[in-house]
Design a protein around this nucleic acid. Structure first.
Lengths: 207, 207
DNA sequence: TAGATTGTTAATCGATTAACAATC
DNA sequence: TAGATTGTTAATCGATTAACAATC
């Protein structure tokens, strides 16, 4: 498949969200123009974006909402089941374990790991000591590892994740992670997001 | 001040993070070349970015780390105190209330609000019924409101935040928020981040 | 058929990169 | 002084926007 730019990739989940909303409210078709309004981009951009994947519309008609939802689900890999383990059972780890939205799209949290096990389960997810991490991963199918530790532990945890063979890391620790080429990292850095807000508050940059 | 592009703004917190790390480890000066390596960008870009704010370096020498940290702290608005209130005392709201990292940079969570008050405080932060929101905001200084509710409540909460006069919203609900020009919104959408990871896993796009 | 709207090609815009004179 | 490295100007690259033939 032709390489798709980062900018386009970041828009895909937003298309998906808006289209699911339209689908839920019974809308059957949508033009690039209308979809663009929801997305706050241009109609050209919508058509360019979809043409990266072959183009799903029909001249004179627009796009079939349900078809587009299905295509995006496929493109985003939401049609498959993904098993997730979370390392770090602090506030963030627990919040993620309890987040019900993931399961709807095929993401299942199958275990939490921590250096200090206080509960045997959290929101129905079993909690294990970090010492059991490798054994668990080797016996269960694990697709994604979430780093929900403090910065201090994050690098060591990353090394263990890579060593045990997990290829996808969802990182919540405020650190940069160097990984081999075949490993994918996606980070959420809450401090950085807050600082961006702080900057914009100050500068009056409201866009 | 000249308008700074979104791309540059997003890099500022990362510069800040790397520079603080250098400062902490006793490094006194750094060249654009070395800083660029940490940031995974080019030295040119580093110099271009800083020149947006006037340029803080010295030919033949590079940048004074402590000076740069101070400049960035100022630019990002981290030198001032910011009071934050969180609406929604679910998993995410509680995680944010308990996150110690914010306070170090001047962000203080002064209250949590929820429709269903189970505790009088969480991690030292008082919890109030959402009915008390407007009264609280009118009597205390509040700079930032965090939307940590489910999608359903988010739009109504947004309206109340705007109506009571708070100009900065940090949004964790997976919805798009339309706001007046003088209000700043910064969103963290965890589902979208997870979907991007899912896409990249599938496509082998590891960058 | 006439109107609407796509997918794609070309034009524009903005961000990144390269080059280099200035100077510490 | 010679070497290092900045800030800035110019060149390049890539993403967004505009235009339009194709066609439902």
């Amino acid at each position: 498949m032709k390489t798709v730019s980062e900018a386009v990739i970041k828009r895909l989940p937003r298309y998906y969200r808006h289209l699911k909303r339209l689908q839920l409210s019974g809308v059957e078709r949508v033009s690039s123009k209308r979809l663009a309004e929801f997305m706050d981009i241009t109609a050209s951009q919508v058509r360019q974006d979809f043409s990266n994947f072959g183009g799903f519309g029909q001249q004179g008609y627009g796009y079939d909402v349900s078809k587009l939802v299905d295509e995006l689900r496929e493109i985003l890999g939401l049609a498959e089941r993904h098993n997730i383990v979370i390392i770090g059972a602090g506030n963030i780890g627990r919040a993620l374990a309890g987040y019900v939205g993931f399961q709807k799209e095929g993401f299942y949290v199958t275990a939490l790991f921590d250096v200090d096990v206080k509960n045997t389960e959290i929101d129905g997810v079993p909690v294990y000591h970090i010492d059991e991490f490798e054994r668990f991963v080797n016996s269960e199918k694990v697709d994604v590892a979430v780093i929900a530790t403090k910065s201090d532990g994050a690098l060591e945890v990353k090394d263990r994740i890579i060593k045990v063979g997990i290829k996808s890391i969802w990182n919540f620790a405020p650190v940069s992670l160097d990984v081999p080429d075949d490993v994918t990292v996606e980070s959420i850095n809450m401090s950085e997001s807050l600082y961006v807000l702080s900057y914009k508050m100050k500068s009056g940059n409201t866009k």
